[in-house]
Design a protein around this nucleic acid. Structure first.
Lengths: 224, 224
DNA sequence: AATTCTAACTTAACGGTGTTAACTGAGCGC
DNA sequence: GCGCTCAGTTAACACCGTTAAGTTAGAATT
């Protein structure tokens, strides 16, 4: 019986080696620039060996995404200690954008690459579990804020409010990733754009926004 | 002398035929799914004929984008008659998102596809011309609003405010395009997300926002 | 009118891609 | 020892973007 388990372990190991190599290559060069042959070369297998473990290139990529979503959720979970839900929302937004800019190719794979109507039921079972589902974490904070009547009446649908906040952060992050080096626009520093966008969207949704410019956490003298 | 002109005219015609076919195919199937061979087939030329007129696939694509940016600017220019700059900003946002969802593949090419440090000087000379530069149109409205002191003090940098507004609209549009069919999220209707996001971001930036939920203009007999 | 020249376009090919079908070969159960 | 299972291989297919070398219609030159 131990034999079967050992075989399974070996299989999982190979699978993990493929995923590690693929993750590294995808994150460095982007989806299209990485070929199955190059992934195979990195682990010194033949290209077709990958097909023993993954149905095709897209399935491999999708598997990586699933794992990375968990990582993002991990970042967010460190913010659970922030008691005030509104402040937590702001922090989540900043960390989200930071994650996107720190791993732009990861981010591109996760949120800027269209994957056909993906969902096999197996992936779905993790939905809503805050340990793995970053969306659920944000939604939880929003729900708390709504419960405290911190949002204006027209933004008291938690799902809608969550999606608006997500869209705002995604807009800042993705525009920076695709157009951040474009000379056409005279870009302001990305930190300014993040703070301004998150500050404005929150202020716009809050029932009684602070009258002073948001006490932004860089409390040290002048921001650059 | 007339001969040379006729030749040039013929050349331009062929060039236009290539662009028309490519635009149609790209818009329908996306960049990667369309091959030079298929474009050539559509106009009944050999694949290499395209290389007589365009340096490579990316140059062809970039040329199409340039033209489509002008189209977007055209949509925005129809809003010039809206006198109140704040209202105009809101309308621009809605039309921007509508444009994105009506031509999602166009939009993807224009704003969601990274093109290396593109800019030959020739493209740059059109920058800032409101007839062709959609960004400049939005920035103009923002500048007017700032001049009227309609924005809170911390949002009176026109460039920054423009970029925040753009990011918000882009976030709603691009998230819908890439994730709109994703079952993981229980999406609210896209119209609701658009209105809520644009309403909130504007409210958050305005010096004295209206106290009632924004009197949203449901335009004539709904878009689908 | 015959020749040369130009330039739009074609044919053939190169090296790459994702993916499949058929094969190999080691290690297990019998 | 025999056969089976199955991870991994080799070879091939049809496609891709792109280039080098032709072809050829028709204007320009003689």
């Amino acid at each position: 019986m131990g034999v079967q388990e050992r075989r399974e372990r070996e299989r999982d190991q190979t699978r993990a080696r493929i995923m590690d190599a693929a993750r590294e290559l995808f994150a460095r060069h982007g989806y299209d620039a990485v070929s199955m042959r190059k992934i195979a070369e990195a682990i010194e297998y033949s290209p077709t060996a990958i097909y023993v473990h993954f149905q095709d290139k897209e399935a491999l990529f999708r598997e990586l995404c699933r794992a990375d979503f968990g990582r993002l959720a991990g970042v967010f979970n460190e913010l659970a200690r922030v008691k005030d839900p509104v402040e937590r929302i702001g922090r989540i937004g900043h960390d989200y954008i930071r994650f996107a800019l720190e791993f732009p190719n990861h981010y591109r794979l996760m949120f800027m690459t269209p994957l056909a109507p993906p969902p096999d039921a197996t992936a779905m079972e993790h939905k809503g579990n805050p340990d793995e589902d970053a969306y659920a974490i944000l939604k939880l904070a929003v729900t708390e804020a709504i419960a405290q009547k911190r949002f204006r009446p027209e933004y008291r649908n938690a799902e809608l409010a969550t999606q608006v906040l997500w869209a705002t952060a995604h807009g800042v992050a993705s525009l920076q990733i695709t157009k951040g080096n474009d000379q056409w626009v005279d870009w302001r520093p990305i930190e300014d754009r993040s703070s301004a966008a998150l500050g404005a969207i929150l202020r716009g949704m809050l029932a009684d926004p602070p009258t002073l410019p948001k006490p932004h956490k860089a409390r040290k003298a002048g921001a650059k």
